Amino acid sequence: MLNCKQASQLASRAMDEKLPMWKNIALKMHLILCRSCTNFTRQLQFLRKASRRSRTNLDFQLTDEARHRIANTLKGKQADR
């Protein structure tokens, strides 16, 4: 049985590549039992759709505030490692 960390990594990978059958089954079983990972997977799908839509709108740009907020968050994540 997968733990949540393994399931979230597989959910992310599954968006970019076809998983082997046994990994796909293990992920689906985990998602049936774990509401948090199911929510995480839905959020990944939402973000992917949103990012694809933003690519079609060439006028789309982040505000300076949003850029700084994202950069600071990423810096904080790197410091935690």
Rank of each mutant, 00 (worst) to 15 (best):
D16Q: 10
G76N: 10
K5I: 03
M29Y: 08
R81L: 10
A71W: 00
N3H: 00
N57H: 11
R53V: 12
A26Q: 10
L2I: 08
S51D: 03
A11Q: 11
T38A: 15
K28W: 08
S51T: 01
F46A: 03
S8Y: 04
T73A: 09
N39T: 00
N72C: 02
C4D: 08
A11K: 02
A26K: 12
R52E: 01
A14N: 12
A26T: 04
R48F: 01
A79K: 14
W22D: 12
Q78R: 08
M1Q: 07
G76R: 09
Q78W: 01
S8A: 14
N24H: 15
I32Q: 15
L10K: 05
I32W: 14
A26C: 01
M15R: 15
P20V: 05
T63L: 01
A79W: 03
R53K: 08
H30S: 15
I32N: 15
L19D: 14
R13S: 10
S12F: 12
R69C: 01
R69W: 00
T38R: 14
H68A: 08
N3G: 09
A7V: 01
R13N: 08
L44F: 06
D59P: 00
N39Y: 02
C4Y: 04
K23C: 02
T41N: 14
H30F: 09
Q9N: 14
R35M: 07
E17S: 13
T73F: 04
D64S: 06
K49L: 10
L58D: 04
A79R: 15
Q61E: 10
S8N: 13
M15C: 14
D59E: 08
Q45K: 03
K77F: 08
I25H: 04
D64N: 06
R67V: 08
T38V: 03
Q9A: 06
I25A: 13
T56Q: 09
N57L: 14
R69Q: 05
R55P: 00
A71M: 02
T38I: 04
H30L: 14
D64Y: 02
F46N: 07
P20S: 12
L19K: 10
K18S: 11
R67Y: 02
A26G: 12
T63G: 00
L58Y: 07
N24G: 07
L74A: 07
F40T: 01
G76W: 01
K49W: 06
Q78V: 10
L2A: 11
C37F: 15
H30D: 14
R42H: 13
L19E: 13
R52C: 03
K18A: 07
S12I: 05
C37W: 09
I32V: 13
A71E: 05
K23S: 09
P20N: 09
S54I: 02
N39F: 00
I25P: 07
W22K: 12
W22L: 13
L27P: 11
Q45M: 04
D64V: 06
